[in-house]
Computed example of a mutant assay.
Amino acid sequence: MTRNETDWAALILDSHLRLLGRPLADLALEGQALLDWLRDDAPFCVLAHDASEDPCFVYANAATLRCFGFARDEFLGMPSRLSAEAPRREEREALLADVRRQGFSTGYRGLRIGKQGQRFWIEDVTVWNLIENGERVGQAATYRRITPAQL
């Protein structure tokens, strides 16, 4: 199935609620207004990748794009493994394997690299599976804290 940005956002919100038992955003918004808010105005990062062999980003809200320094069309479609430096990729892969087994994980901290080579920590990250019709079709993550890396 081909999904557009709105489809991915709805799946992100639905899967978060089902797996973690609470909404990603506790707002009075619903429908398209909630999806627009998540994409444009949410004060926290939300991103997702598909379930392909080499997962690629399929969703990134405005906060995520600012964090990584990419335009939407540059970020979407990029292999998600490229958001972590090579020495840290094993740690990241271990986290993703854990999420595949449990459905979600909380409290992750990882080093990431932006478009201009800037390094930063994403902290208190929650990662969860995106489930549609009982099948895992991707994974999403959210985080609110970013700290510049002092390397």
Rank of each mutant, 00 (worst) to 15 (best):
G114H: 05
L82K: 14
L35A: 09
Q139G: 04
W8D: 05
G77L: 07
D7K: 12
N129Y: 03
G110E: 05
E30H: 15
L96P: 06
R72K: 14
R100G: 00
E123A: 14
I113R: 14
D14M: 10
P79D: 00
A140L: 08
G134I: 06
E91K: 15
F70K: 06
R66V: 11
L19R: 12
R3K: 14
E53A: 13
A62K: 02
Y59A: 04
I146C: 09
A28R: 14
L17F: 10
E85C: 12
W37K: 03
S52N: 02
A9R: 04
A141L: 10
E74M: 11
L47C: 09
D7E: 10
L76D: 04
I12Y: 11
W121H: 13
A9T: 07
D26W: 00
F120N: 08
A149R: 15
S15V: 02
L13S: 07
R144M: 09
G77C: 05
H49T: 03
Y108T: 00
L11E: 02
W37T: 05
I12V: 15
R18H: 00
D41G: 00
C56H: 11
F57N: 00
A60E: 00
L35Q: 04
V58A: 08
T126F: 01
Y59Q: 03
Y59H: 06
G31Y: 03
A86V: 14
R101M: 08
G31S: 06
L82M: 13
T64N: 13
G77R: 07
F104I: 02
